[in-house]
Structures are given as C-alpha cells and as structure tokens.
Nucleic acid binder design. Structure first.
Length: 644
RNA sequence: GCGCCCGUAGCUCAGCUGGAUAGAGCACCGGACUUCGAAUCCGUAGGUCGGGGGUUCGACUCCCUCCGGGCGCGCCA
C-alpha cells in the first residue's frame, strides 16, 4: 500500500536527520511531483532544514540521500529544483504491493448521523446533499475497516411537525381517518401533499393566529403523547419518514437506526442530562432579567446577553437541551438506553421506541467517535451542545463529537424563476438565493430524480435502440443516480451550490455519467476480449504481475505508468477524505482517473495489439483501472451500468 | 455590533498540513467516428489569484487591514 510507503519514507528521513545533525526533525511532508518524469513523490524537507542548519538546501538534500540508504519500495532518489528530494518508486514492486489490501483497522465504533429531515414534508435537494455527503463518508469509513453505525434522527415532536398538524386540522379540517385515507390513496404522494399543506400554514398563522397559540398548543399535545393530535402527529411523521427513506433508497442511501425525539422525551433522557448539568454547574437558574425563570447556559463571552436558554420558563426543554441528551447517549455517557423495534425488515433498519420493543436487537449508540452531518447554519447551536459536553467535564468526548458541516444548496435566480418563485430585481443580480421551504419553494428530491431518469432514458434509448424498456429504465436509473450524486459531491463542503437544472442535468464533462462511461468502456474491452477469444486465459494477465517483463513494460512509457500509479492511489485518497472530512477530494480523484483512462483508451489499441505480451500488459492495465474506478464510484454510491 | 464562510479564466469550481511552470469542466473557435462505442479524444484562446501591507529562502495558501458578497447570533429547530 502506498500509505505504508509514505510512512517508511518519513521514518527513514526522520531518523537520518536525527542521527546526522542531532536535531529534532521538522514535520515531513510528501507531495506529488509536478510531472511523473520527476518521480512519484517529493519532499521539500531540505528547504525547511536550510535555515536551521545554515546550509544550502541542495547540499542538505544530497547528504540526506547519501545517508538514508536503501528505502524499501524506492528505486532511487534525486535532488531537484531548489533542493527537493524526489523519490522514484520501484514500479513493479509498488504494483505488486498494491494487490495486498487492507487498512490497519482502528478499533472503536464510529457513529455517523446524517439526513435528519424534519418529517413534515417531502425531501428537497438540500437534504440530498446532506445524505450524499454522509453516505459517501460512511462508505469510505467502512472501506477503511471501521465499525460504522448510521443514524437518521427523526425530530417527530418539533415545531415543523406541529405546524403541518395545525395545517391538517385547522386549515384542511382533516380528521385522523381522513389522513389515513389519503395515505392509502396511491394517487397521492403523501409527503408532497404535506409539502403543500405546510406552505399554506404560514399565511394561515398570519391571518388567523398571529401569536401562534395553535402551534404552542399542538406542540404541547404532541410532546405529551396520548391525545388524538399526538396520534395524528405520530402517523404523519412516521409516514413521511417512510417516504424519506424511500427517496434516499433511490440514491443508494440507507440507515441502521432511526432515533426519535419522542422517545428521548418519553424515556426521560433529558431528566438525567438535566440532573448532571445542574450538579456540575453547567447551567444556571435565572431569577431575574429577561431570562427570568429559565435555566441557561453561559457561553464563553462575558455578559449575560449571550446566555443560551436550555429550559424555558414554562419548564419545557429547547432543542439544544434534547440534543445534549442525545449526544450523551451517542457517546455512551447516558446511563440509559432506548428500546428498539424493526422499522423496515428488508433493509434491516431499526427505530427507537418507548414501548416494550424487541428483546433481541443489535447494540446501538456508545460511539467512540461521532460525526454529526449538519449544515453550517447550525454551527452556533452545535457549539452550544459542545459547550454542554465541556461543562459536564467530557473534554475528550467533546473532541470526538464532530460537527461535519457543509454549505447549503441555493438556487440560481434563473432557476428560481423557472420554478415560478417571485424574486426581486436585487435578487436577480445575485449569484444564488436561498428559498423558503416554509413557503413551499424549492426543488423536491423525487421530482429532480424523476427528471434525471427521464432524460437519461431518452439518451439510453437513442444510443441503444435494441434494449428492452426494463433494461433502459434500469440503466437510466443508474445514470440518474450517478449524475446526481457526483453533482452533489464534486463541490467542496463549504461551497454553496447554486442549483441550476441545466448544470445538474448535464451528462457531459465533469459529471457522474462521464465516470460511468469510462468504467463501462473498460468493462467492454474485457467483455469483447472474452467474446472474441473464448479460450483467452485471464490467469495469464495476473501471472504477468510476477513476470520480469512487467518491469520493462512499466518503465517503457511514463503515460501508462502515470495511469497505473493514479489507480493505485485510491486508498491514499480515501484516507485523506477521512482526515479532512472532504469527500470532494474523492470525486475529483475519480474524475481525473477517468480522464486519464479515456486518454489511454484513445491512444492504445488493446485487443488488436499484436505483441502478445504487450497485449497482456494492456489488459492488466485496463483491469487495474476499471477495478479502481469502480471502487471509487462505489464509495460515492454510484453504480456502473452494463452499457450506456 | 459580534462570530463564521466566500472572493482564482466569460460562467461554475479545484488547488492537499506554505513549495517546482496556478489547473479542470462548461461556453466559444478549429480538428478526430470504416477501429475496444464520439455520453469520447486532441488543439487554440482566456488569469494583476478582490485591493494594500506584513511574515518567509519561498504566499492562491499564514497574519493585519480595507472593499465586496453570503450566513448565523430567538423561551424556533
């Protein structure tokens, strides 16, 4: 593995620097060379040492090379430029070594919490970004051998659910029986129906209930459970949660557990957290001032203006309070557990419950590291939760409870207008505008997926007139998912995505289908070869790995080696994603790999190559690259179609 | 007011913990299908990295400051 090679190089350099000059070595960085002709890896460490040693960097580099001796996997080292040390790897050995897979598995359970959509209306593109990033991160952690648990928190007792219930009861005048009928009606998408109801509630409040007393009453009823309103909320929230899971399943996202806020309330998780917070003086009771009667948390800054209310004067707990209790449970610091039931047997999804539950359930919670995928607008609240953990004295756990933040998906002004949203002249000049889900604005996830699938179907049918409809649909589905997931992943986390249909529906250039196309081509070559020569012995391709000729082939051309070397870097890139929490790195890597492969594809004839040994070598290259590309796509939740 | 983020080619974005000549895609223009499939490939053009200071052998990257833009700061989540 390349990561092992990196570690070896750093070790040797460190010990050489120590023994040679008797100093503590600086942080050693390895970077890619600008051109493969200059070797594969480089370090500017001599430049860093130059000042300390009062010597010219090139001289230091020469001395380091002379004293370092032989490094396993490195063929030679050279001084270059201002004083870089360039490493030329032993190409054949590196390739052979890469066949031995497996990370040094880090012990400890990782919990990734993502998606977390309020269960009161259909999912939109912003939710898709959250799920795509979260699920990709999960896949990478799993590939790295980590024990991962995926949680999708269901805020079924929050204000947003209360609002849609107000809409159903007081605007639409629906009873629980009416709602049951609507849910059963297969011509109605229930999450879409609620999307519209929710949009109507805003104006209802404005006209009929400006003080939101109905909201407060409804919220209280929902929190207490038992009542007809509570049962209606339960029905609505869980039905919509089911819709969300179905939407996410379309883009290959799934979960292990759905923790529900109602269970945090009913099982009294908060009571324990509250006791702890009071005992350790992490929160204070306010007996005067604007926060009179509340329990508040004092944040870093001096005055009381920044105090955050945790328990309201009427005794109810804010979201932050409930989240602190939930975080404690996730970190295994709460002396209580949920009860559990199977939610979807087929996909093996579990849900928390306050009733008896199922005795033989897997063990949930108690993560050593917890990642919370929440958009950047909630940084302030996440920080309050963190302060809560610190206030309880859990410094180490606070460090391992990580806010994995990302920017939102906005719309381009043009896109907003296409959707019929009225925008001002000022907005029209902006790069992007955030639209209000409360007003029913935005792009629904299922609508976008439907559009993508239809577009893809047309393209597939056009190119493959002989395919049956069911096959066209299957391929189009994979292409749609590829286009969507790649589109959501290629932007770095803190870039705001200005959504635009033209760009999102594009299948050319830096897109998911481009990557899929490259993989399909690789597969086609192998398939064609099987077809043309049924008795072609593929074991000979892998035997080539141990053939002395391999070295000659790899050294013969830098362009092929560059492609092979890039394919070998997947593990290194995956590791980088884990360290930096930046899945876009993987997306960019996969794109570059596909690009290089396409170039190779055009430059070399594989099946018609006349030299039989060279042909074997080319087949080996194709096999290596398609394996790496397919794996990279899989880590992004993208499947390779049979053909395109 | 305080805090966080952003400003790189016409547009949308990369640029790893400071390192070698700042890179892609789209759009534009010009080429390549009788070949393993052109959802592809090749080429041309396009940048005072928002401005100004500073640190450094070296700054798109770090610090300060200014300008422009976004977001957050609720007894909502």
């Amino acid at each position: 593995m390349l990561l092992d090679l990196h570690a070896r190089i750093k070790d040797v350099l460190r010990s050489t620097i120590r023994s040679q000059w008797n100093i503590e070595p600086p942080e050693i960085t390895l970077s890619q060379t600008p051109k493969i002709e200059l070797g594969e890896l480089a370090t500017p460490v001599s430049l860093a040492l130059a000042k300390q040693l009062q010597r010219a960097p090139r001289g230091i580099a020469e001395e380091l090379i002379a004293r370092a001796g032989k490094i396993e996997g490195i063929e030679r080292m050279e001084v270059a430029g201002a004083g870089y040390i360039n490493f030329y790897v032993d190409r054949a050995a590196t390739l052979r070594g890469s066949r031995v897979r497996g990370f040094a598995t880090e012990a400890g359970k990782v919990i990734v919490e993502h998606t977390n959509i309020n269960p009161n209306k259909a999912a939109h593109i912003g939710h898709l970004r959250n799920a795509a990033i979260g699920d990709t991160f999960v896949r990478i952690l799993q590939a790295a051998g980590r024990n991962v648990e995926v949680q999708n928190y269901i805020d079924n007792t929050g204000v947003q659910v209360a609002d849609v219930i107000v809409g159903l009861k007081h605007v639409e005048k629906k009873t629980i029986e009416d709602i049951q009928r609507i849910i059963k009606d297969s011509s109605v998408k229930f999450d879409y129906y609620c999307w519209d109801v929710y949009a109507r509630v805003a104006s209802f409040y404005e006209l009929e209930d400006p003080k939101h007393t109905l909201r407060a009453e409804t919220l209280k009823e929902i929190e207490e459970g038992k009542s007809e309103t509570a049962r209606m909320a339960e029905l609505v929230a869980m039905t919509i949660a089911r819709c969300h899971l179905r939407t996410m399943a379309r883009i290959n996202v799934d979960y292990d557990l759905l923790p529900r806020e109602s269970d945090i309330l009913h099982l009294k998780f908060w009571d324990y957290a509250f006791r702890e917070l009071r005992q350790k003086d992490a929160i204070f009771f306010e007996s005067e001032g604007k926060n009179k009667g509340c329990w508040v948390m004092r944040l870093e800054s001096e005055g009381h203006d920044d105090d955050k209310i945790i328990v309201r004067s009427n005794g109810t707990v804010t979201y932050v309070g409930k989240d602190i209790a939930y975080q404690l449970w996730k970190l295994g610091l709460l002396k209580q557990d949920f009860r559990y039931d199977v939610f979807e047997a087929q996909q093996n999804v579990w849900v928390t419950t306050s009733s008896a539950g199922t005795p033989n359930h897997p063990s949930f919670g108690s993560g050593d590291t917890v990642y919370n995928l929440i958009d950047v607008r909630q940084s302030y609240l996440q920080n309050v939760v963190r302060q809560g953990l610190l206030g309880l004295g859990y410094e180490e756990q606070a460090r391992r409870s990580i806010h994995f933040s990302y920017e939102v998906v906005a719309l381009t002004p043009a896109c907003a207008e296409e959707l019929g949203i009225e925008i001002s002249d000022e907005d029209r000049k902006r790069a992007h505008i955030e639209v209000s889900g409360r007003k029913g604005q935005g792009v629904k996830a299922d609508d976008l997926l439907d559009t993508l699938e239809n577009d893809a179907k047309q393209e597939v049918a056009k190119r493959n007139p002989e395919l049956r409809n069911s096959e066209v649909a299957e391929i189009a589905h994979r292409i749609a998912v590829g286009a969507l997931r790649y589109f959501l992943l290629k932007f770095t986390r803190n870039a705001i995505i200005a959504f635009d249909f033209r760009e999102a529906l594009n299948f050319d250039g830096e897109t998911g289908p481009y990557l899929q196309y490259a993989a399909v081509r690789g597969n086609n070559i192998i398939n064609k070869l099987r077809e043309a020569e049924p008795d072609f012995d593929f074991s000979r391709v892998h035997q080539l790995l141990n053939d002395p000729k391999l070295e000659a082939f790899l050294n013969e051309s830098n362009d092929i080696w560059e492609l092979v070397y890039l394919a070998l870097r997947l593990d290194e890139i995956a590791n980088q994603v884990i360290m930096t929490l930046e899945p876009a790195t993987l997306a960019k890597y996969a794109f570059t790999l596909a690009q290089r492969f396409s170039l190779f594809y055009h430059r070399y004839r594989i099946i018609s190559e006349e030299d039989p040994q060279k042909r074997l070598f080319y087949v080996l290259v194709v096999d290596l690259v398609r394996e790496s590309l397919t794996k990279a796509l899989d880590l992004m939740g993208i499947e390779v179609p049979r053909r395109m």
